[in-house]
Amino acid sequence: MDSSIVINNLIKSYGSLRALDNLNLRVENGGFYGLVGPDGAGKTSLMRIITSLLLPDDGYIRVAGLDPVKDYKKLRLKLGYMPGRFSLYQDLTVEENLKFFASVFGTTIKENYNLIAPVYSQIEPFKNRRAGKLSGGMKQKLALSCALVHKPEILILDEPTTGVDAVSRREFWDMLKDIRSKGITILVSTPYMEEAVLCDTISLMFDGKIIDSGTPNEITSHFKEPIFVVKTDFVRSLLKIIREMPCLKSVNSFGQTLHVVLNSDDCGAKDVSEFIKSKCSFDFQIEPYSAGIEDCFINHIISRKK
């Protein structure tokens, strides 16, 4: 299989700030790739370099076989891009927005209707409404339709679900899967760790670096330390207690549970259990746990800081 995006040793600095530090990335043709990380990790800079909107300082980069620095004109025809903020004309109607982006790319809504139908049909009943009057979820669907209307080879979405409620977020990912099934390569970024598992392949980004890459399963399999989940009604109290424990690497709250990561295999659930009991009499249960993406992310940052 060809690779849609190949990046080797990419570097980008803003003054003294290293926004992207020696990045390597490979997105396969037809792949569904996620960049996962908090604000300031470098996701937007990376996407802008891929879309030819930013010039890299150094490194090798090919997108759809083209160099975004030299062949940006050809490349831009092949890309669908949805920038971080919703980029629509609020004073134009739904249909006018879509029509405009279609004709900018020299096509029509009709021509690629099949492709955008799963997304667009949901907002089509409101096609005469101004984009500014749409709800957040609908705006997002319109923006996606506009990015798709010219049938791009690669669809690049910069934090499409940030600030969007959990329900709309789920719907949005369903639509992405649908688009992907039509053979369009997707590169998407998100700050929500739980969305990472919805992609085929992900890179965890932090501080301008990729800290781990692979399928979600591969990444979680990289988690070597013993990890346990503590279930209790007294999360806040137990959190404080467990923090004092020896041989603890980290303890983090996940909803109404605590994830406890230990330093070595010498310690186990029993030690944790005994330690808690020696300090208090709160009810709790402790079970072995298999780490999720967020556990991996936290673990990487903590290891790096140490």
Partner: peptide
Amino acid sequence: DEPTSGVDPITRRQFWDLIY
């Protein structure tokens, strides 16, 4: 109002410690 939007998972939890 969405105080932790876009923040990394560790800082997010530190933020919650401040709230507690």
